[in-house]
Design a binder for these strands. Structure first.
Length: 328
DNA sequence: AAGATCTTCAACCGCTTAGAA
DNA sequence: CTTCTAAGCGGTTGAAGATCT
């Protein structure tokens, strides 16, 4: 019964995919780099509609896993690896593709600054996004910007540009978008049956984590407490300096000068301790009905106020790249 | 209009890791 | 403990579409 229902859903989704995507819907054979004989009768290259259909049907009935035997039993002339990849990156019901939102971009930049090319780990924090898509996004978009600035994507210059310029600008744009959205709705937002309370957390790190920059470092943590389905606090921490400085035990004294209004509250969380499902970023924090409060602090930029010139960036190419970045 | 070049992203490859035998 | 197999991960490729000249 359940599998039947799932199969119906999958077929609806299947039809939708083939009506909108460039992958061939033809069941005719696609060009392959090697003959099937050379591959031991195995096919390579783009999947056909028929193959997708078979895979979807088989998984709807038998479930996923044991990919090699699944491929055989489903009558697919593909490796188990290929089937797994096709399912996870394309056919899975909850997979989201295209239109990476500003919030997702911010999340990717932030998590990449922390974890580097750990695409799978990053993807866990972006519901519905695959490691492959994030990796492609990074290569095609982010690296393009580095190229525009004539610097290496791993260079300090580029990382600082992201941290001090693009990420704050992304936040501004997210804020602006949400302000617009919020103005057309009620002030108090609800998700499901629960209410949402959020605060922006803004503080200077204590000195012992901060010796290289003095008091110039700053951290912003978006804090959301959700009722309804979640029933847990959801915290989206954002650091625009050294990610290692996430402080799991930050007590009130570690927050130094509080400059946020009295109705905001303090909380600190180590993102490593968060389960992916707890970081319902795109579905909650940044939904149009969400409340994405943010305080911007440009002290750190002041600290590096000569970076842009000394680093060889002219204001012209910085803004040109920024336009490119935000008008994707 | 047509060829050249660029961009995107699905898919593959090789390596590593996990866990069962 | 070792070996084997499946799954997962990150880097890379190449076809197809988009854009430029």
């Amino acid at each position: 019964m359940l599998s039947l229902h799932l199969r119906e859903l999958r077929m609806m989704d299947f039809k939708a995919r083939y009506s909108t995507h460039k992958i061939t819907g033809s069941s005719s054979s696609t060009t392959t780099t090697q003959s099937e004989e050379e591959m031991g009768g195995l096919r390579r290259g783009p999947w056909t509609a028929e193959e997708d259909f078979n895979l979807i049907n088989y998984i709807a009935t038998h479930g996923e896993g044991r990919w090699n035997s699944l491929a055989r039993c489903a009558g697919l002339k593909r490796t188990g690896k290929s089937c797994r990849l096709r399912w996870l990156n394309y056919l899975r019901p909850d997979v989201r593709r295209g239109n990476i939102t500003l919030e997702e971009q911010l999340m990717i930049l932030e998590l990449h600054s922390r974890w580097g090319n750990r695409w799978s780990k990053i993807a866990q924090h972006l519901p519905g996004r695959t490691d492959n898509e994030i990796k492609n996004y990074w290569r095609t978009r982010v690296q393009k910007h580095a190229k525009q600035l004539k610097c290496d994507v791993n260079s300090k210059q580029f990382k600082d540009t992201m941290r001090y310029l693009w990420m704050p600008r992304l936040i501004e744009r997210i804020q602006a978008a949400n302000t617009t959205a919020a103005s057309s709705t009620t002030a108090a937002c609800t998700i499901g049956s629960g209410t949402t309370t959020e605060a922006t957390h803004h503080h200077h790190l204590n000195d012992n984590t901060n010796t290289d920059v003095g008091s110039g470092q700053w951290v912003v943590a978006h804090v959301g407490v959700f009722g309804g389905d979640f029933g847990v606090a959801q915290v989206i921490p954002t650091t625009y300096n050294t990610p290692e400085t996430w402080n799991t035990a930050a007590s009130s004294e570690s927050f130094g000068t509080h400059i946020w209004p009295n109705d905001h509250f303090s909380l600190s969380v180590n993102p490593d301790n968060l389960q992916p499902e707890q970081v319902g970023y795109s579905e909650s924090m940044i939904s149009p009905s969400g409340y994405f409060n943010q305080v911007l602090d440009f002290q750190a930029m002041e600290h590096d106020n000569n970076l842009w010139v000394e680093g060889g960036y002219t204001s012209d190419n910085l803004w040109k790249v920024e336009d490119m970045w935000f008008n994707m």
